[in-house]
Write a protein that binds this DNA or RNA. Sequence first.
RNA 1: GGGCCUGUGGCUUAGCCUGGACAUAGCGCCGGGCUUCUAACCCGGAUGCCGGGGGUUCAAAUCCCCCCAGGCCCGCCA
Length: 554
Amino acid sequence: MPHDMFTLIETAIKETSGAADALLVPGGEHADLASTVAFSLAKQKRQAPVKIAQDLVADLQKRPDLAGIAIEAKGPYINFIFGNAYVSEVLKAAVRPGYGNLEKKTTRVVLEHTSANPNGPLHVGHIRNSIIGDTLARAFRKAGYPLEVQYYVNDMGRQIAIVVWGFDNLDSTQQPGEKEDAHIARIYIAANREIEKDEGITQQVNVLMQLVENGDPAVVRKFRKEVSRCLDGFKVTLKDLNVVHDRFVWESDFIRNGNTERIINKLKRMPQAHEDETLYLDLSEFGFENKYVIRRSDGTSVYAARDLAFHAWKGANFDRVIDVLGADHKLIGAQLQSTMKLLGEKVPEIVHFEFVSLPEGSMSTRAGKFVSADDLITEIRKRAFDEVTTRRPELDVESRKAIAASVGLAAIRYDIVKVSPEKSTVFDWKEALDFERQSGPYIQYAHARACSIMEKAGAFTECYDLESEQEIALAKEIAKFPQVIERVVVELRPHILATYARELADTFNTFYHFEPVLKSEGKIRDRRLTLVKAVQNTLKESLETLGIDAIRSM
RNA sequence: GGGCCUGUGGCUUAGCCUGGACAUAGCGCCGGGCUUCUAACCCGGAUGCCGGGGGUUCAAAUCCCCCCAGGCCCGCCA
């Protein structure tokens, strides 16, 4: 509906003015839409923009197709203000379950995110990937796409070989209560310390890597065992974060099933291929200076080779391939895309996000310098529980715990998703634990308020004719939701939804303080209750798309 | 050295791709508001040469060029 309004007005301006571009811009506080076309016509018409705007408005007002829209010239600007019919339509759609769902699509999408190396727990950098990825996934589903979300398990890397070496050669007993992934990190860190002291160990690690690539059963089993244990730990963390994967795809499978070898053979025959001790590609035609190594001199494949096989497989099974990767993968991501193009395979779309660092510098699993997601979750739940206890002392412990878990989740997810992905951030405990600011809980609170009104209201007759300025402003904010979902999946930028949800909560809170709902009577009460129902529904849909619980009470 | 990203009030941040009307919000600061639908809230106020300098344009936070600062990358690691 709103999109139709855009097209409708755009066409009308083009037809009336003869301009090639209607130059429609957001009207801000002045209007729902505005056109700056008068500026661009000034030179050609040899008239002042203000005069052109006035003349155009007079013509536009005569058009029957724009009947429900108030059109006025404000200086050189032409303002369009949508009328009651529009607002009623919005409201009717917004009270229905699933508001914001877009038309069903047939394009099958595969989205890969998180895919952290299984050599230690997920930390606050990894979960930026998880939360961006999971929010995108939810937005894609809401936008009507059939979607599969994958986690790519890097189970053959040097890191895992180092973990396995550590379990074989160091005291590796699990401590009581120690989570699997934390245990693996401890051994990984210890093993790296040993490697620093004794270079001979690197040779032993290399041997492990060769054995696993050649399918030595005992070594393969060891790799699988430790990687699985680490993954078990990840799954607990991801569940706590409400992050869902449909499938875990193991890197080593692409060695075992011959896909990697097949793609290497194909690459070998390409004009860009060079073979000395190693096999590498010369991608200088794409502006890459360095060699893109595919196979080591000892005959083992590198990550890039398996990654090519993985992406070829995804491309064969899905129509769109999307990866969420950290900014450190920008170069190899671009090389992967170029190589896929050369191979004639489907080119993956890559969403990059910049780094999360600690005040003291970059995070490093190897050096043990990181804040784990589990620690963050534990701390934030504690904080949230204290907060709920202060505000709602009458609730029993279990209810308070449940609210605290939801509030904690909201705080973490919102805090991470609200920032544009291209911005690097510094993790700060004080900020992360503060949910009284511009935050997920703030939006949850607005939703809970709306729920509370609905519960107390009882039965009422839905009424879609709004009147006051606040009511209409709120309905027009609600109207934006479907386009927001559309923008998120087109631009692959989930923070747009975070910003929107906050703005909707702002608008509702303002309405809440100026327009009494339950205390009003008759038709006014009905239309305000209808509006509150629409807000509640839109906030709920927004929160759920953000992976945040739309709790009814807090 | 080269490439990519970022630089917006004291701090955090939206807007930048697709140039337009007094630059978005939060925190902090100052001043108000709970016998009234949940004050995790709301209202008002102060604080901005939108990193710096050039250019394009009727119009630049937004586009182009140069410079400065920070992050990331440039491996037979992943």
